[in-house]
């Protein structure tokens, strides 16, 4: 189970300020603590970044990889910012992950980048027409993204299908549909397709105390269905990841299993 540390996001005031001032300290502190907490990749969410996106992404990737030996998830809708990040990314610790493409023709250019720079890419199962209604519709869109990926020369092994997690407080019925979609995505190919979720979106809008409870239980169910990766807060979810791995027989039990990586 790959946890992609979510904390380096423009949504956070501390991170946003550090990005504006190009202050490496806070960015590297957060990257290092996520790494120590068990993240296997660091998400760099710079938002739409219409002005100076290339510089910002380049600076983020360099700053993160100076501090941690992990690949970076390049999280922006800005095509040229993604390309700038890919150019500078050090692949020694794994290929970068583009976040994201979808079934919207405007986003196909991201597949071109994935192919050109031999990167991994998230395929968000939405089209131009808006939100998918259920698991079947998500799987249908997934199949189309897979076809596009092959057209652009992206290996299916590098494609992570994302069923789009919605808020449980406003779209409760989608929680189970997302879980079903994770199962269906894997059946679209042999070997099974890889899957990813933006986990904490499920509890967006919920009271602060409830959020980790919902996130962790949701993750347990997704892991049971075979989820490959989650963009999440490692310190919050790693105990769940370890415990579910023990329950599913992927890790050998020992009394101290939570204490070891």
């Amino acid at each position: 189970m790959l946890i992609i540390g979510e904390k380096l996001s423009i949504m956070s005031k501390r991170v946003r300020e550090a990005m504006t001032k190009k202050d490496k300290g806070p960015i590297q502190d957060i990257a290092v603590s996520q790494w120590n907490d068990g993240a296997g990749m660091i998400d760099a969410n710079i938002g739409p970044a219409e002005d100076g996106g290339e510089d910002l992404m380049e600076w983020m990737v360099t700053t993160i990889q100076e501090a941690v030996q992990l690949p970076v998830c390049l999280d922006t809708t800005n095509y040229s910012a993604i390309e700038a990040g890919l150019k500078i990314h050090n692949n020694r610790w794994g290929k970068p992950l583009i976040n994201s493409t979808s079934n919207d023709p405007d986003r196909f250019s991201m597949l071109e980048l994935a192919s050109k720079y031999n990167a991994r890419i998230i395929g968000l199962t939405v089209g131009k027409g808006g939100l998918p209604a259920d698991a079947e519709e998500r799987a249908g869109i997934a199949a189309e993204i897979m076809a596009r990926a092959s057209e652009y020369g992206v290996q299916l092994d590098d494609l992570y299908l994302d069923p789009l997690v919605l808020q449980i407080s406003t779209s409760q019925d989608h929680a189970i549909k997302v879980i079903q979609a994770i199962k269906m995505f894997q059946e679209l190919n042999d070997p099974p397709m890889k899957t990813v979720v933006g986990l904490s979106n499920v509890s967006n809008g919920c009271p602060k105390l409830l959020r980790p409870v919902i996130n962790n239980h949701f993750l347990s169910l997704l892991m049971y269905e075979g989820l490959t990766a989650a963009i999440a807060d490692p310190v919050e979810v790693i105990p769940t990841v370890k415990t579910i791995n023990v329950i599913l027989g992927k890790t050998l039990y020992a009394h101290s299993y939570l204490e070891i990586s």
């Binding site: 020992a254 009394h255 101290s256 204490e259």
Partner: peptide, 14 residues
């Protein structure tokens, strides 16, 4: 006991 074997290795390493 395989689980205690793993546990003992962990404790010694710690």
């Amino acid at each position: 006991d395989i689980n205690l074997s793993k546990q003992l290795n962990i404790l010694i390493t710690q």
